[in-house]
Amino acid sequence: MEKKPQDLEQEFTRIAREYKDTIYMVCYMFSQNTAEVDDLYQEILINMWRSLPSFEGRSSLKTWIWRLSLNTCISYDRKRSSKGKALPLDMQINLYEDTDHDSKQIKMLHERINRLGVFDRAIIMLWLENMPYEEIGAIVGISAKNVGVRLVRIREQLKNMK
C-alpha cells in the first residue's frame, strides 16, 4: 500500500535521525576532508529519500542503511561532486582538525581503514559493527566463509602498515 507523502517524510526524518551516526561514520571512512563528508552524507540521504518508497523490508532497516551508504560511497564520482553546495552538517566536532586524544585515535582508525581497498573497507566496518558473517557476506556479495578469509588478510595488511 502506498504511503502518504507526510507519512513518508516522517519516516524518512525518523530514519535519518536514528541512523545519523552510522551514515556519518561510513562517510567519514570514505572521505579525505570535511567537504567530502558533507557531499557523501547528502548523496546518501538523497538516495535514501528516493528509494524509501520501494523499501519492502526484505532485509532489516539497519542492513538496508548500511548497504545504501556503502554503495553510495563506492559509486560516488568525486569529479562530479558538488563541493561547497552540500548539506552542511551542523556538528561541533571536526574529526579532521580536532586535536584531543580521542580525535587522534579516531584519525588513526580513519587512516588505517582509508588505506584498505574499498571492499575491504566495507568488510572491516561491518565487522566492527558486530554483524554476523552471513549478513556481511550478503551486503558485500561474497560467502560467509570468504568473509572470514578476508578478515584474516585485512589483519595482515594492518599489521604491515606503518
Binding site: 545504501l68 556503502l70 554503495n71
Partner: peptide, 8 residues
C-alpha cells in the same frame, strides 16, 4: 541498484 545490489 544502489539500494538493493551488493557491493560486488
Amino acid at each position: 541498484t544502489i539500494s538493493i545490489d551488493n557491493l560486488v
